[in-house]
Write a protein that binds this DNA or RNA. Structure first.
Length: 583
RNA sequence: CGGGGAGUGGCGCAGCCCGGCAGCGCGCCUCGUUCGGGACGAGGAGGUCGGAGGUUCAAAUCCUCUCUCCCCGACCA
C-alpha cells in the first residue's frame, strides 16, 4: 500500500477520553476511530491486523477439524423463545421488530442458531462428533463499554460450537480447543493464564478462561504460586476452619455505638472471625438476609448465581426495617418470614451477632440452634492472601483481560431445542455441546497493550498490518525510483508492504513508522544507497541495530527475517501446546 | 442504573468563577529555504462554542431542560 493513496492519518495526541494505552496507540496510529460508545470503525491498518488475527484463528480451528460457516446476525426471536433466553437475557440483547412486527434480535451470541442448524440435520450417532466456527459480528448492549476495543458493544468474535455424543466425547474436543487456544495466543505472542471461570449466562457447568494479566483488566484472578489452582474470583474458594467447640448459652450484651463489625470486635475484644456479619440484598423487591462470618465478605457473583438472579441490589433501610431487623445491630435471630442465606463460615460456633436492638449484640449465636438459614452455601469473596483450597498456600490476586474462553454447555441448548441423535440401538440421546469464543478486536487491543513502547506499537508479525514498512527519504528522483522498484518487487514476492511515499520529512516518517509498528522497516535514502543499498531494521531493535543490504538482496533478506519471526512464534506455539493438560 | 468528569476549528487545550471583538499549540493550504528522528520563515483557510429554551442592551460565559462521550462500580469475547 502506498501511504500517499491510503486513507489514514496519524495523530500526535489521542482524542480526549481515550484512556488505555492500546486505545490511545490504535487511535493515534490510525487503526481505529470511535463512532459511538462501544462502536468503532476499523481503518485500513486495523482491518488488516484484524484479518491477520482471523487468519491465525482460521488456521488453528481447521487444524483441529473445526470448519468455518456463517450464521445470521439478525435473527427471528423464535429460537430465543424456545430456549427461554428471550426472557432471561436482559437489555444487553437488542430487540427490534421487522416490518411485519415480528420480534427480532441482534445476535449477542449464536448458540440458538447453531443448535438449530444441527438439530435439523443430525440424526445418527455416526454423524457425531463435530464442531464448527464462524467469525461474526455480535452486538451486546453492554451497561458500560470501555477501553476502546477492549469492551465494545458491537464486536467481532470467533465463536465455535461443538456437538458430541456424550461427556467423554465432549471432553476430547474441549481439550483440543484448549490446545488450539494455547497455540493461538502463543502465535500472538500474548502470555495468558488459564483460569477456571463461571459459565455466566451461557449456562455452563465447566469453563476455562484465557486471560492476559493486566491492571486494566476487568476480571479478578486468584492464582496459587504452586501452579495447582488458578481461578476467576467469581468461582474461587478457600479453606474454612470451623473450631469444634461446645455451644455456649446465648447472652445479650450492651454494645453502645458499635455499628460495624470492627467496632463490635474491638469493644468486646474478640477477633472479627468470632462475629457474624449481616448483609441485606434486594432481589426483585424481596429481602434476602445474608449472614457471613465477620472476617469475610460476600461474593455478589456467587450469591447471584446461588439465587439464580442477575439483579442483586443492596436493600434500603426501609426494606430492612420491614423485616424487623435493625440496621447496624441486625441478625436473623428471632426474625420470621425472612429468607436467610448463610455462608458456610456462619457455621462457626458461638459468634457475636446483632440483637436487632440498638446498642445491643448477642454472644454465642449459633446457626441451626438460634436461627435457621434457608440455604447454607459458599458465598465467600476470596481475596489475595487467603489459603488455596488445594494446599493452603496463600493465593495471589491479580487482574486480567479475558481474551478467550471455552465452555461446556452440556444440554443447556440441545435440551430445550431437542437436538438429539439415535445410537446404534435406536435409543435417543441429547447432543452434548460446548462453545468456544475469542474476540477479534479485544485481542487486537490486548496485543497492543502487551506489544508497544513509548514510540508506538510493536506488533508480532502474526498481527502486524504489514510485514514490511518502506521509508523513502528525500525527494530525489533516483531514491524514489529505487524505493518504487523495491516496493514492486516486495509486493510481487508476496510480502505485505506499506510504502511511505509521502513528501514528508524524515522525522515524520520515522515517527509514524514507530507508531504504526510494522515489524520490519526498510529505509531507502541517499545515505543508504551510498552505503550500498537499503537499511533494514526491526521494530523491536534499537535505532542503531540496523543493517545495510544490497538492493538486489533485500527480498531474500526480508524473507529470511520474516521466516525467522514466524519461526519464533511457531516455537512459542509448540511450547504452549506442550503445556496443554492431558487428563 | 448509582457515583464522578467532559463537550469550544481535524487533534490537544485556554477562555466560563467575575457576561462585552472566540484564542493558543499541533495539523491543513500557498511560497521560499530545508531533508536520517515529529524542520524554519512569511502569508493564509477553517469554529452553529453539543442541542433547545430562558435571563440580559449584550451569553462560550448566568439559569432550566436535553443529547453525547469518558472514568469508577454490577455484565462478558
Amino acid at each position: 500500500m502506498r501511504m500517499s493513496k491510503l486513507f489514514v492519518s496519524t495523530l500526535r495526541d489521542a482524542p480526549a477520553g481515550t484512556d488505555t494505552v492500546s486505545a490511545q496507540l490504535l487511535t493515534r496510529a490510525g487503526y481505529q476511530r470511535q463512532l459511538g460508545s462501544g462502536i468503532y470503525s476499523l481503518l485500513p491498518f486495523g482491518e488488516r491486523s484484524a484479518r491477520r488475527i482471523e487468519q491465525v484463528l482460521r488456521e488453528e480451528m481447521e487444524a483441529i477439524d473445526c470448519y468455518e460457516l456463517s450464521m445470521p446476525f439478525v435473527q427471528p426471536s423464535d429460537l430465543w423463545k424456545e430456549t427461554a433466553r428471550w426472557d432471561r437475557v436482559g437489555p444487553e440483547m437488542i430487540r427490534l421488530q421487522d416490518r411485519s412486527e415480528r420480534d427480532m434480535v441482534l445476535a449477542p451470541t449464536h448458540e440458538e442458531v447453531a443448535t438449530d442448524l444441527v438439530r435439523r440435520s443430525v440424526q445418527s450417532y455416526r454423524e457425531l462428533p463435530f464442531s464448527f466456527f464462524q467469525i461474526q459480528t455480535k452486538f451486546r448492549d453492554e451497561p458500560r463499554p470501555r477501553g476502546g476495543l477492549l469492551r465494545c458493544r458491537e464486536f467481532t468474535m470467533k465463536d465455535a460450537y461443538s456437538f458430541s455424543l456424550d461427556r467423554d466425547d465432549f471432553l476430547r474436543i474441549y481439550r483440543e480447543f484448549h490446545r488450539a487456544y494455547l497455540r493461538i495466543f502463543a502465535r500472538f505472542d500474548l502470555p495468558v493464564v488459564v483460569v477456571e471461570a463461571s459459565g455466566g449466562y451461557m449456562g455452563s457447568d465447566i469453563s476455562l478462561q484465557f486471560t492476559y494479566e493486566s491492571e486494566i483488566g476487568e476480571d479478578t484472578l486468584l492464582i496459587s504460586p504452586n501452579g495447582n489452582y488458578s481461578v476467576n474470583a467469581e468461582v474461587a474458594t478457600t479453606t474454612l476452619e470451623i473450631p469444634d467447640e461446645e455451644l455456649l448459652e446465648m447472652e445479650e450484651v450492651a454494645t453502645p455505638d458499635c455499628k460495624t463489625i470492627e467496632d463490635v470486635a474491638q469493644f468486646l475484644d474478640v477477633p472479627t472471625s468470632r462475629t457474624l456479619k449481616a448483609m441485606f440484598f434486594n432481589v426483585r423487591d424481596e429481602l434476602v438476609f445474608v449472614t457471613i462470618r465477620g472476617d469475610r465478605e460476600v461474593s455478589e457473583e456467587k450469591l447471584s448465581e446461588l439465587l439464580s438472579t442477575d439483579v442483586l441490589e443492596f436493600a434500603d433501610a426501609d426494606l430492612i426495617r420491614a423485616s424487623g431487623a435493625v440496621p447496624g445491630y441486625a441478625s436473623p435471630v428471632g426474625l420470621t418470614g425472612v429468607k436467610v442465606v448463610a455462608d458456610e463460615s456462619a457455621r462457626t460456633p458461638n459468634l457475636v451477632a446483632g440483637a436487632n436492638k440498638v446498642d445491643y449484640h448477642l454472644l454465642n449465636v449459633n446457626l441451626g440452634r438460634d436461627y435457621e438459614a434457608d440455604v447454607v452455601a459458599d458465598i465467600t469473596q476470596v481475596r489475595g492472601g487467603m489459603p488455596s483450597p488445594v494446599d493452603g498456600a496463600p493465593l495471589v490476586e491479580s487482574r486480567g483481560i479475558e481474551v478467550g474462553n471455552i465452555f461446556s454447555l452440556g444440554t443447556t441448548y440441545s435440551g430445550p431445542l431437542n437436538a438429539t441423535y439415535l445410537d446404534d440401538e435406536d435409543r435417543e440421546h441429547t447432543i452434548i455441546m460446548g462453545s468456544y469464543g475469542i474476540g477479534v478486536g479485544r485481542n487486537l487491543a490486548t496485543i497492543a497493550e502487551h506489544h508497544h513502547d513509548d514510540a508506538g506499537l510493536k506488533w508480532p508479525l502474526s498481527v502486524a498490518p504489514f510485514d514490511v514498512h518502506i521509508v523513502a527519504l528525500g525527494n530525489d528522483e533516483a531514491i524514489q525510483n529505487e524505493a518504487d522498484n523495491l516496493y514492486d518487487a516486495l509486493m510481487a514476492g508476496g510480502i505485505d508492504t506499506l510504502y511511505d511515499d509521502r513528501a514528508a520529512s524524515p522525522g515524520v516518517k520515522f515517527a509514524d513508522a514507530d507508531l504504526i509498528g510494522v515489524p520490519i522497516r526498510i529505509t531507502v535514502s541517499s545515505r543508504s544507497l551510498q552505503a550500498g543499498g537499503a537499511e533494514i531494521k526491526r521494530r523491536d531493535q534499537d535505532r542503531d541495530a540496523s543493517v545495510i543490504v544490497a538492493l538486489d538482496g533485500v527480498i531474500e533478506h526480508v524473507q529470511t527475517e520474516r521466516q525467522a519471526l514466524l519461526g519464533n512464534l511457531e516455537s512459542l506455539a509448540k511450547e504452549a501446546e506442550a503445556r496443554t493438560p492431558t487428563d
